[in-house]
């Protein structure tokens, strides 16, 4: 079986990627980043709505999470792109979306919206848990100094909540990069789509899918390094001092239980 693998193709795909591939890689990256950013924004709005005094806002936030966590992502992607057309007979998202400064492929835009909407439902839970994890005394101290609720939230509670939000957010982005492959099904040639197209013209599935798996692995690994850097920065601003290089590496690579505690 192994002999059937065309190692040359694999080698080429990994070490000499062509420009079509690089474009696909770029799509995966920018779509994931934009969708994640949208997800964080929606999650934040959803979390604040969830804590609102007004019942309709809490209800809306709850319904949002219920729907987007309770249905398959691929279905959401189809509904965002084709839903308006199929249900109401008008085109919500045109073939190309014009932002004035630049244009974007309509399917890619729909993909970002769908992935972002889905992600927002998960981020709402993460952000809410992060806010809950901040000592209640912080909000009270801020209020007792005369800060209105929004200011206390923005300046005191949220900065402290990020410490709890960032690690799961990093994991969410890892999933996002992999889940973004689903938007191939609305015609976006991202990383997975590129492999799919190559395979369908060459009938070499193993080579192309092995190569694409490798590239996803590269993306997620690079991200995990970036994530470790960000978490280190946060730890520094929290403690107000610098970690040693050894601690940084340890923090990035060792499981939590094995980490070397910093000397105070």
């Amino acid at each position: 079986m192994l002999a059937a693998v065309d190692w040359h193709i694999l080698w080429q795909r990994i070490f000499h990627p062509d420009h079509v591939f690089v474009l696909a890689l770029w799509r995966t990256i920018y779509i994931s980043v934009c969708a994640q950013a949208l997800g964080v924004l929606l999650g934040l709005i959803g979390a604040l709505m969830r804590m609102s005094r007004f019942f309709p806002l809490r209800l809306l936030s709850g319904a949002y999470v219920l729907i987007f966590r309770g249905t398959p992502l691929i279905v959401q992607i189809f509904f965002v792109y084709f839903g308006a057309n199929l249900l109401f007979g008008f085109t919500l998202i045109p073939r190309t979306v014009d932002f004035g400064l630049f244009q974007m492929d309509g399917a890619a835009f729909a993909g970002i919206v769908a992935l972002g909407l889905n992600e927002g439902a998960y981020m709402r839970e993460i952000i809410r848990a992060g806010i809950d994890a901040v000592d209640r005394g912080q909000m009270e101290a801020a209020k007792s100094l005369g800060m209105p609720y929004p200011m206390a939230m923005r300046r005191i509670v949220l900065p402290q909540a990020t410490r709890f939000i960032i690690p799961p957010l990093g994991n969410e982005f890892n999933s996002m990069m992999k889940n973004s492959s689903l938007i191939f099904f609305i015609g976006v040639t991202e990383l997975f789509g590129d492999a799919e197209i190559r395979y369908s013209t060459s009938f070499k599935p193993v080579e192309y899918f092995l190569a694409v798996a490798f590239w996803y692995l590269v993306l997620t690994t690079v991200w995990s390094l970036i994530q470790a850097q960000i978490e280190r920065k946060l730890a520094v601003s929290e403690r107000g001092d610098e970690l040693s290089f050894r601690e940084r590496v340890a923090a990035a690579w060792l499981p939590a239980a094995m980490r070397i505690r910093g000397t105070p």
């Binding site: 912080q138 009270e140 209020k143 007792s144 100094l145 005369g146 929290e238 107000g240």
Partner: peptide, 29 residues
């Protein structure tokens, strides 16, 4: 909020803002 600004409160468990220095804590409000 405006009324609370006129009333200082010191808590049993301090409730300082841990992400701000001593001086930043004092000048925040």
């Amino acid at each position: 909020a405006r009324q609370r600004a006129e009333i200082g409160m010191v808590f049993q468990r301090f409730n300082l803002f841990p992400h701000k220095t001593a001086l930043e804590n004092v000048i925040e409000a």
